[in-house]
Design a binder for these strands. Structure first.
Length: 572
DNA sequence: GCCGTTTTCGGCCCGACTGTTTTCAGTCG
């Protein structure tokens, strides 16, 4: 049983206690402990065996005992007894927007409803409206909630949400009564997938802003409309939440609305201890009711005594403590990147010629480009036969001669076979400037075999890097099973770089893996786009923000190095 | 149920919107 599963069970317990009408603080305690365990950087089994469960902030005597029982016996009597009293499917009911623990309980006790299907049936039979505290509107809202729930179960990719949000933001900028507008929420924190879009507007005419928002070209349905908050559903079925505040509160609102929720709760706890109060309107001294700041986002952190941190770090995964102790990392930034080290050209399955890739790279301010066309075994992607390898090398040489102050690296992306072997013999591999390797088939193999394939490749002295190490495709393919800790250990020992693949549906390695590989094993990384055309080179920004979320600094990433240092590292 | 540089008891993040109420509960972020 891993951290994730233990956290999920504690969350379920919290929800069931909620339905039972327990006091909210006990419920909150279970959810907090669940979050704490899920985001704890060590294996919960190890922590338990070393008797350190109570070192996890949010886990006290009672929850520690329950986790011990769960890990020791594989079951938890308290949890099982609770499930007999509260049908587990009631928890699904609470997933419906507009249905919380109280309504779920009423539906169950009054009408015996335990599933979303039964709830839908009750709405159609108009059996909800007569219930205590409900009416025709309630029925309507819950019906809409169910439809929304069924439609929006899937989160969308960061870069898709970014596209939609950028359009809304630029629409707003046209209006003179809009003094400021920003994306907020998980979009501003650059999470890899996005559930809904949050937009903040600074204005002294909130009603006009709300009007504009509800009549955007993208708007399909208005869910709620007030003076400071509005929600709509776009034509693509995505929820967009708007907050409007006056200019003097803009910074406080941006901080609040960016989150994460857990990060904000930590900040407010710290504020409270100092006799301060934070809300979306500012930071206040409680005793005198004096407002201390809030026009700028930086005010909040400064007045609390924290260093300012970029939104990508705000997940309550240790960044608050680091900011208090002035120990925040100096995160990598887009401008630190001096070249893309994973790009395909027409020499395999890319759509751009080398010259086009070079031209686009120079527009991005790069000094070099790692050309990593597929190798021979990947026939489906036009992998290079040996004669192509030689011909492409001549072309790379020619382009390099014609392009001053820029270097095209003659690279390749090898395929790791089932036994860990690769496409070309060593004397050919020795001709390349940059050799990456990755798994392209056999995803269904066992964890042991897949891990062994990667280890064998890393032990090959000609291979510099492993590309998209876990093979996941967001929303389509889970990562294949790997012993990640062993992979990180051997990567560090063999000085093999691990790729952070920036393609929007890969982002592989992911943030938590980057952090663990760096902090526990001392691994080094390459950020590449896996671009298959010059137009995809800007995808690098999604890799950089993922690197930030993984706490990487420029020194951790090979392609922030100047060309001379880069080449020296690769020859080693 | 958790936690402590005000506290081992008495707090626990804060505010907006909706609908059903006749002053507020439930839900959400």
């Amino acid at each position: 049983m891993d951290n994730q599963r233990v956290g999920d069970i504690l969350d379920e317990i919290g929800d069931m206690l909620d339905i039972q009408g327990e006091i909210s603080f006990k419920i909150q305690a279970y959810h907090r402990a669940a979050n704490a365990i899920r985001s704890f950087p060590e294996d919960i089994n190890k922590v338990w065996r070393e008797n350190r469960l109570k070192d996890i902030r949010g886990v006290g005597k009672s929850i520690a005992e329950k986790v011990e029982e769960l890990l020791g016996t594989g079951r938890l009597i308290f949890y099982e007894e609770l499930k007999e009293k509260v049908p587990p499917s009631l928890l699904d009911l609470m997933q419906v927007p507009g249905v919380g623990p109280k309504k779920a309980k009423i539906f169950y006790e009054e009408l015996g409803i335990t599933t979303i299907e039964e709830l839908l049936g009750a709405i159609e039979a108009h059996r909800i409206a007569p219930l205590r505290g409900m009416g025709a509107k309630t029925e309507e809202n819950i019906l809409r909630g169910i439809q929304l729930f069924q439609r929006s179960r899937e989160r969308i990719l960061l870069f898709e949400a970014h596209g939609i949000a950028e359009k809304i933001v630029s629409d707003f900028r046209k209006y003179p009564f809009v003094k400021g507008v920003d994306m907020a929420g998980s979009l501003r924190r650059m999470k890899e997938t996005i559930g809904d879009i949050d937009i903040l507007v600074g204005s002294n005419e909130p009603l006009k802003v709300a009007e504009v928002f509800c009549h955007l070209p993208e708007t399909a349905e208005v869910l709620a409309k007030g003076e400071t908050k509005c929600s709509i559903i776009t034509k693509s079925g995505l929820q967009v939440d708007l907050r409007v505040v006056a200019s003097e509160s803009y910074g406080a609102a941006l901080q609040y609305f960016t989150g994460s929720k857990e990060h904000n709760i930590r900040l407010r706890e710290i504020a409270k201890k100092k006799g301060l109060k934070i809300s979306e309107y500012g930071i206040f001294e409680v005793a005198m009711g004096k407002r201390l700041g809030g026009e700028k986002e930086e005010d909040i952190y400064r007045i609390l005594g924290l260093d300012y941190m970029p939104p990508t770090l705000r997940e309550n995964k240790g960044e608050v403590e680091a900011a208090l102790g002035h120990r925040l990392p100096k995160l990598i930034e887009l401008k630190d990147i001096r070249g893309d080290l994973h790009v395909h050209s027409i020499w395999s399955d890319g759509s751009s010629r080398i010259e086009q890739l070079v031209e686009e790279s120079r527009k991005l301010g790069y000094e070099y480009l790692g050309l990593c066309d597929h190798a021979a075994r990947l026939k489906v992607a036009g992998g290079m036969e040996l004669k192509d390898v030689e011909k492409r090398l001549q072309e790379v040489k020619r382009v390099n001669e014609e392009t001053p102050n820029f270097t095209v690296l003659n690279g390749v992306e090898l395929n790791i076979e089932n036994d860990g072997a690769v496409d070309y013999p060593e004397e050919i591999l020795a001709q390349f400037d940059l050799v990456t390797a990755s798994i392209h088939w056999g995803f269904g193999q066992s964890k042991e075999q897949l891990t062994r394939r990667l280890l064998k490749a890393m032990e090959n002295p000609y291979i510099h890097a492993i590309s998209h190490p876990t093979g996941r495709i967001l929303g389509k393919r889970d990562p294949y099973p790997l012993d990640m800790e062993l992979v990180f250990k051997v990567a560090a020992e063999t000085e093999t770089f691990l790729e952070l693949n920036s393609f929007p549906d890969r982002l592989d390695l992911k943030d938590d893996h980057l952090k663990q590989a760096k902090e526990e094993f001392g691994c080094k990384f390459i950020i590449g786009t896996d671009a298959h055309g010059a137009g995809q080179l800007p995808y690098i920004k999604y890799g950089v923000v993922t690197a930030q979320r993984g706490c990487l600094e420029s020194e951790d990433v090979l392609n922030t190095y100047p060309i001379d240092r880069l080449m020296k590292m690769l020859r080693k």
